[in-house]
C-alpha cells in the first residue's frame, strides 16, 4: 500500500501491459460485437456501417407469415429455455459436487491431492471427444444397453440418446469439475473444531451439514455456480449431439444467424443480450456476496 503511494508511476506503468492486453483481447472485441449489433445487415453476411436498432427490435417483434409486424415471443422463449437449462445444470452440479468436495476435503492430504487431480483429469481431453464418448455409452448397442442385456435385465431397448435427459447428463458431466474445485477449495479451509462444537451442542449430522458446513462452503458454491452457469448459457455441443438439436438454444441461434442465416447484426444482438444476462448474473452475485462477506469479517 505505502509503496504504491510513494511511487504512483510504477503502479501505472507496471499495470499498463495488463490494461493493453485486456483492452485488445476483451474490451475491443466486445465493442466490435456491440457495433455490429447496431449496424445494418449485408446481403450476403457481413454488415454495413450505419446505425440501426432493427436487430434488437427483431428479438421481440417479427413479421408473421402474413407480412405484418407482430409481437413474437419465440426468441424470448429460446432465451428462457437457455436460462432454464443453465440453471438446472448448475443446481444439479451443486447438489452432486458438494458431497464429493466434502469427501475429498476429509481425506488425508496425499489422497486429497490425488483425488483433486482425478477431478481435473477430464480437462486433459478435448471437450468434443468427451461428448462423443457419451454417444458410445448411451447409443444403440452402446455400453449401457450391452451391459443391461448381459445381466439379463432387458431384451432390446430403444436408444437412450437424443432426449433432454441425455443432454442434461452431458452438460452436468462437462461442467461439474468447475463446481467441485471451488467448493473443495472452501471446504478445505473448514475448521474441524466447528463441526465438533456443533456436535457438542447436540446438533445431529443433518443439522451440522445445513447450519455449519454449507454456510461455510457457500462462497465456493457461489463461485462454482457462476463458473458452471456462464458457459452453460453458450453450450452448443451437448444440445446437438446428445439432445438431438430439436430445440434451439442461444448458442445455436447465434451460430445460425452468423452462418446460414447471413444476418450478422441480429446474431450480434442476441450475443449482446446473452452477454448482458451474464453480466447481470455476475453483478447480482457480487452484490449478494459482498454484504455477506463483510458481515462474516
Amino acid at each position: 500500500m505505502s509503496g504504491a503511494r510513494f511511487r504512483p508511476d510504477f503502479r501505472l506503468w507496471g499495470l499498463l501491459p495488463a490494461w493493453v492486453i485486456m483492452g485488445f483481447t476483451l474490451i475491443l472485441p466486445i465493442g466490435i460485437v456491440v457495433l455490429v449489433a447496431f449496424g445494418t445487415r449485408g446481403a450476403y453476411g457481413g454488415f454495413g456501417w450505419g446505425f440501426s436498432g432493427a436487430s434488437f427490435q427483431q428479438i421481440l417483434f417479427q413479421k408473421g407469415w402474413t407480412e405484418e409486424l407482430e409481437f413474437n415471443p419465440q426468441y424470448l422463449e429460446i432465451i428462457a429455455r437457455t436460462l432454464w437449462l443453465a440453471a438446472l445444470t448448475t443446481a444439479i452440479c451443486a447438489a452432486l459436487a458438494t458431497p464429493v468436495a466434502y469427501y475429498i476435503a476429509c481425506q488425508p492430504p496425499k489422497r486429497r491431492a490425488a483425488l483433486v487431480y482425478l477431478v481435473t483429469l477430464p480437462f486433459w481431453v478435448s471437450m468434443i471427444v468427451r461428448v462423443y464418448a457419451w454417444l458410445i455409452i448411451l447409443g444403440n448397442d452402446g455400453v449401457i444397453e450391452k451391459s443391461l442385456r448381459a445381466v439379463g435385465l432387458v431384451e432390446d431397448i430403444d436408444s437412450l440418446l437424443f432426449n433432454n435427459t441425455a443432454m442434461l447428463l452431458g452438460m452436468v458431466y462437462s461442467y461439474i469439475p468447475l463446481m467441485i474445485l471451488p467448493v473443495f477449495a472452501s471446504m478445505e479451509k473448514l475448521d474441524g473444531t466447528l463441526i465438533e462444537a456443533s456436535h457438542d451442542l447436540y446438533a445431529n449430522r443433518w443439522v451440522t451439514a445445513r447450519r455449519v458446513i454449507l454456510p461455510l462452503a457457500r462462497p465456493g458454491i457461489v463461485a462454482g455456480a457462476v463458473l458452471v452457469f456462464v458457459p452453460c448459457l453458450g453450450a452448443v455441443l451437448e444440445p446437438i449431439l446428445l439432445g438431438g438439436g430439436k430445440q434451439m438454444l442461444m448458442g445455436n441461434l447465434i451460430q445460425t444467424q452468423f452462418g446460414g442465416g447471413r444476418n450478422w447484426p441480429f446474431g450480434a444482438a442476441v450475443a449482446v443480450v446473452l452477454m448482458a444476462l451474464v453480466m447481470l448474473v455476475l453483478m447480482i452475485n457480487a452484490l449478494r456476496t459482498r454484504p455477506a462477506g463483510e458481515a462474516a469479517a
Binding site: S159, F162, I240, L241, G244, G245, K246
Partner: peptide, 12 residues
C-alpha cells in the same frame, strides 16, 4: 418422428 437434427458423426 425426428430423433435428431445433427450434421456430425452421420456415418456411425
Amino acid at each position: 418422428y425426428v430423433a435428431a437434427y445433427t450434421s456430425d458423426n452421420i456415418e456411425n
